[in-house]
Amino acid sequence: MIESFTFTFESYGARVRLSSNERSTLDGLVAVARVSLLGRVTEVDGGEPDIVFELNRLDNGDIMLVQDGTELGASDSELKAYRFFDSILRVSVGEHAPGLVFLHAGAVGWKGKSIIMPAESFQGKSTLVTELVRAGCEYYSDDFAVLDENAYLRPFPRKISRRTEDFKTYELSIDDIGGKTGTAAIEPGVVLLTAFQEDAEFAPIFETPGTGVLKLIPFTLSIRKQPDFAMGVLHKLSSRAIIISSLRGSAERFARTLLDFVDKNVN
């Protein structure tokens, strides 16, 4: 019989079980989980998990990541396997977290109100968040805007993940850029749907609350698992925040333009 090592924990209300056929690999998973979820990993005994991850060493030396019984891929690189797990763990916790909605978005606070910038990967979220923090905003997240039942933004301040033009990755701490991390839950301010385009000028289109919510759905992790709750929170967000769409040019220049817009229209 193959030995299995397990660790079950709760994070943001979601219950996760990790297992591996190697003790050292399980230890690696737990270490990644602690960093990935900002230390909010509380070991629990028993109970049905919402999510189960297995990372098993195969006979050929590769490691295979399995989620809820589905094989996600084998790799001969531990780095790749742990990185993939790191991403998928946060997404899965975000899908299941009760009482919270995780939006895939950069998020900052400005004068007590949230600025949320949903975007797909590689669209410059982290770059824009970095520039906004340099311009005086409080840092909340470059990855997920975490909203409570009142659509207030809560901090999820991972290190800012940056990439070079040739796709090498590195991380920046808030101290590195001389910024400050937000700690309080803050009320909705602006939701900005944007994409980078060389030399684009800021030309905001105000979305209606309904179309705004529709445009946020692709970024809402729990929309399929908790549609009722997620729709309720998006509704609250859209009724209290201004939702705008606009292309943007360089993040450095755009950060100040956006804050001027927020000052005129929100605060």
Binding site: L72, A74, F84, S87, V91, S92, S121, L221
Partner: peptide, 12 residues
């Protein structure tokens, strides 16, 4: 697939 829409990490 929530992961596919928010992440570009991979093993294969």
């Amino acid at each position: 697939n929530a992961l596919a829409s928010v992440s570009c990490t991979c093993t294969t």
